[in-house]
Nucleic acid binder design. Sequence first.
DNA 1: CATACCGCCTGTTAGC
DNA 2: TGCTAACAGGCGGTAT
Length: 291
Amino acid sequence: METVRLGLQRWVVGRTIDTFDLLHPRAGRRHLPGAADFAARLAGRTISSAQRRGKYLWLPLDGGPDCLIAHLGMSGQLLVLAADADDGPHLRARFSFADAGQQLRFVDQRTFGGLHLDKLVPTVDGADTVPSGIAHIARDPLDPQFDDEGWVRRVRGRHTTIKRALLDQSSISGVGNIYADEALWAARLHGDRPTDRLSRPTLRSLVSQLRTVFGDALAAGGTSFDSLYVNVNGQSGYFDRSLNAYGRVGQACPRCGSPISRVAWMNRSSYFCPVCQPVPRRRTGADGVRG
DNA sequence: CATACCGCCTGTTAGC
DNA sequence: TGCTAACAGGCGGTAT
């Protein structure tokens, strides 16, 4: 998502929207007044910047509505393409600009993503602004304002497992199933470890590993697992080539050589090394669930 | 209140 | 060969 934000910053910031065409109702489902209203509100607006928090992107607009929010779901793409470029089968929305240059297109095969409008409100710390509808999304670990110690404290105070905590976007954002498994592998932690029994140094180390995983992915241009994730120029990232655990069931752990395990987890999968990341012993009566 | 987990979508692919 | 079922996954909503 940061890769996409950088692309938008380069290619669409400063440009004025001429027409907006919503081509699939699911892409605009969060804009309740409908496609015609959506188009009317965007016409003539100039995009003033490109912002991101976790997996949400937003483009602040001059003259209100405050901003256009984009969430790509798992298969969404924002592409900057010539006006005569082929639509393809999954084009969901199109932005044409007053300068008649390249268009911005929202393409989304599985339609989990979407676009909507929102107003900007100050963050609780007053440091900047955020769309009102995503104020519950936490900062991500690459955000200079992310509070490591605050996250460690919060996680240790909860009664859940560490993988669930990593995927909880209201505590730490930007972490999906792939990056959660990779960071847990790097930190040698099994995702089922109870958060209230992890030490402060262990959790600090986990944030640090997460930052490394994010940094490496960003340097490689993002993660593309099935070629659906691409940047605004249609180039896909190649970070998937450097995954250590995710998707590697049966292959050797790059650290110890043991075969990577895969288990069903929350209607998806978890990948881990059973030797480096041992399954935690179940808590029993003697240990006490509440301790 | 805190935590757990389903269902939304559709194209690809494994398996029969 | 042609079909079915599993799978990918962020997150809002609902159940516990």
